[in-house]
Amino acid sequence: MTSPALSVLDLVPVRSDQRTSDALTASRSLAQVADELGYRRYWVAEHHNMPAVAATNPPVLIAMLAGATERIRVGSGGVMLPNHPPLVVAEQFALLEAAFPGRIDLGIGRAPGTDPLTRYVLRGGSAESADDAVARFPEYVDDVRLLMAPDGVEMQVGGRRQPLRATPNAASVPDVWLLGSSDYSARLAASRGLPYVFAHHFAGQGTAEAIALYRSTYQPSPEHPEPQTFLTVNAAVADTREEAERLALPQVQAMLALRSGGPLLPQRLVEEAEADRPAQQEPLVRRMLDKWVVDAAGPARERIDALAQEFGVDEVMVHPVAAALAGTPAHESPAREQTLRLLA
């Protein structure tokens, strides 16, 4: 069995002992570790108004991370397109591709990635425009791709035709991926001949069905004659399984709070999570850990290889969820770096 290539998904977590600047420094170091170890790509998410997530603006983060690394592909996992005018996204990623040619991925999602208030503000104070943007998602995807193309588009305004390009003279364009946690984006990606990623790390189920639907309905495109996809997994890897489970506990508790409507807080340190571990949550904690890759190096890598074979992919994107111990320097995330090193 051939081992898959490895990539990284980063939400830029903010711990209870960190400022935003500390979290950014830690993620920059994590990207450099991934680059040195030969990981294929490094993606950052888009989430807003969350105390534990600093990944609010993927293009800004991508510029920072691509500038701090040498060869790894850097991209969005993803830009939540209904939050933004397509031209703005096209301009941002056309410039990133010009600055770092051949290294930029534009992953696009349909979910808002935030609460209703922030979504309302992002769309200029109009709930109707936000809903309209979601309904027009396929059109927005097409617009971004056309605007980033070297020739751009031509539109008729005021009785005359005028060219419109995201950047004056593009030599190359970013790779565009569609992301999703349902079959909607699988169908859309297949119809457009685009690469596709199902959010296995978040949904935890429905992955096989979504990937099968994507592959079975795929319409080849000139850029992508074959369907292209990979798997995403949450991972915490340490010297022992017991230590890996300790390090994963804060993220498990955060996910349980998110899904149960509990308060969203900065990511806990390991000791904070252990001090507040309700007994009634233990079955839920165990079920979640069983879905993730949480183990020592050898068994963890075997699990990733087995998942890649099960879903027929040659790449696995790891979301390193190992938290920090008390006393860890605020600008460092050694447990996340350890996860990448032990899996490489």
Results as ranks from 00 to 15, higher is better:
Gly206Gln: 12
Ala210Thr: 00
His201Asn: 14
Gly193Thr: 11
Ala170Gln: 11
Asp132Asn: 09
Leu247Gly: 03
Ala244Tyr: 03
Ala248Thr: 00
Ser181Trp: 07
Arg145Gln: 14
Tyr140Phe: 08
His200Gly: 05
Arg136Glu: 15
Pro150Gly: 11
Val173Asp: 01
Ser216Ala: 14
Pro174Ile: 06
Glu243Gln: 14
Tyr218Cys: 05
Gly204His: 06
His200Cys: 11
Glu243Leu: 11
Gly204Met: 13
Val153His: 02
His224Ser: 04
Thr217Lys: 12
Pro138Gly: 08
Tyr214Trp: 05
Asp175Trp: 01
Pro250Thr: 01
Ile211Arg: 09
Val233Pro: 08
Ala208Pro: 05
Val173Tyr: 00
Pro150Glu: 05
Leu231Glu: 12
Arg145Glu: 14
Arg215Leu: 08
Asp175Glu: 15
Arg161Met: 11
Val144Glu: 06
Tyr218Ile: 05
Thr232Arg: 13
Pro168Lys: 04
Ala186His: 10
Ala149Thr: 09
Ala186Ile: 06
Arg187Glu: 11
His224Pro: 02
Leu179Tyr: 07
Gln219Thr: 14
Ala199Leu: 07
Asp132Met: 10
Leu256Asp: 02
Asp151Trp: 00
Pro163Lys: 09
Ala208Trp: 00
Met155Tyr: 14
Arg246Gly: 01
Leu164Gly: 08
Gln156Tyr: 07
Pro227Asp: 05
Gly193Tyr: 02
His224Gln: 07
Pro250Val: 06
Ala235Asp: 08
Val173Gly: 00
Val233Asn: 09
Gly206Thr: 01
Val141Pro: 05
Ser191His: 08
Met155Glu: 12
Ala171Glu: 12
Ile211Cys: 03
Phe230Thr: 12
Gln228Glu: 13
Asp132Lys: 13
Leu188Asn: 12
Asp132Leu: 14
Ala170Trp: 04
Leu178Ala: 03
Ser182Val: 09
Phe198Val: 06
Glu226Tyr: 06
Ile211Val: 15
Gln205Lys: 14
Pro225Cys: 05
Arg241Trp: 00
Leu164His: 02
Leu179His: 10
Ala212Val: 03
Pro150Leu: 01
Leu147Ile: 12
Ser216Ile: 01
Pro195Asp: 10
Gly159Asn: 10
Leu179Gln: 00
Gly180Trp: 00
Gln205Thr: 14
Thr207Cys: 08
Ala236Met: 03
Pro227Gly: 10
Tyr218Thr: 07
Ala149Met: 06
His201Gly: 06
Ala248Gly: 02
Arg241Val: 13
Ala133Glu: 04
Ser181Met: 13
Pro225Lys: 08
Gln228Lys: 14
Ser182Gly: 08
Leu256Ser: 06
Leu179Met: 06
Ala170Glu: 05
Ala189Val: 03
Val144Ala: 01
Val153Asn: 09
Leu249His: 00
His224Thr: 12
Leu146Ala: 15
Gln156Leu: 10
Val153Ile: 15
